[in-house]
């Protein structure tokens, strides 16, 4: 593959006069997990929202070599970019299976949704058990699985995950991140944003550290995990619990 699958080049996002993200560049290859770690308020969620088109940004965002800056959220989804938002943004009153079917909204109408649905159920058997249940009545972990499953229904080439471990019990976090790690095999490029740096660096191939809106460190995940600065700020006993 020539060139990266998804690339942010000097992307900045401002809320009024405050620059929440400054000149951030990163790139993702197919089948690669790239993580952005950093403390709460470092601008990680803002960066993902800009990449998805929820927030306006400056700089360039390229997908498969094509600039997508001017595309709306809907057009980016159709192109093959998906975001699992921090708040999941499920259709709470609707059944699990309806949530999933709507995930395939941008797929060509003739295509069989049933096959995609089976694939998602294979990945997340728990969702199949609960397919008639309203999404809002499920546990936090199940809702995260549903949000991921719904995003996968669109068959994205790039999947962005915003804090998938947020608010979940450690056992569930482990389960979810293993699933993310498995997704790599499908060739999808994953951009994983996490406060839980230890867990994220364990499954990622490459990582970026964000502090107050800028990238301060980057490198292969194993190198970052061994970097004294990262250990002290994010992996040590004083940092985030793993």
């Amino acid at each position: 593959m020539s060139g990266p699958l998804f690339e942010l080049d000097r992307v900045s996002v401002s809320y009024g006069r405050i620059e929440a993200v400054r000149q951030v560049s990163l790139s993702i290859q197919p089948g690669q997990i790239v993580t952005v770690v950093g403390a709460n308020g470092a601008g990680k969620t803002t960066l993902l929202n800009a990449a998805m088109g929820i927030l306006p940004s400056t700089g360039s965002i390229r997908f498969q070599g094509r600039a997508v800056n001017s595309l709306s959220i809907e057009e980016r989804v159709t192109a093959g970019i998906a975001l699992v938002a921090e708040k999941r943004e499920l259709f709470a009153t609707m059944a699990v299976e309806d949530n999933l079917r709507l995930g395939a909204y941008t797929r060509p109408r003739g295509e069989r949704t049933a096959d995609a649905l089976e694939e998602v159920y294979t990945l997340f058997p728990r969702l199949k058990e609960r397919r008639k249940q309203a999404a809002g009545t499920m546990s936090g972990g199940e809702r995260q699985m549903l949000a991921m499953g719904r995003a996968l229904m669109a068959k994205p080439r790039v999947l962005m995950l915003d804090e998938p471990s947020l608010g979940l019990a450690p056992r569930i976090v482990k389960e979810i991140l293993e699933l993310v790690s498995d997704l790599r095999r499908t060739g999808v490029g994953i951009l994983l944003v996490e406060q839980n740096a230890r867990a994220a660096l364990r499954i990622a191939d490459y990582g970026y550290v964000m502090e107050t809106g800028t990238v301060t460190l980057e490198g292969p995940a194993t190198t970052l995990a061994a970097d004294p600065r990262v250990i002290e700020s994010y992996l040590g006993l004083s940092g985030q619990a793993a």
């Binding site: 959220i73 809907e74 938002a85 943004e89 259709f91 709470a92 009153t93 609707m94 709507l102 909204y105």
Partner: peptide, 23 residues
């Protein structure tokens, strides 16, 4: 119908609807 459910989804969660590509 998928269109009907998409309308319903827009009512339930507007951002969620945009994230699955519903205009």
């Amino acid at each position: 119908t998928l269109t009907g459910k998409a309308l319903q989804a827009t009512a339930v969660n507007r951002l969620g609807a945009r994230l699955v590509g519903i205009p």
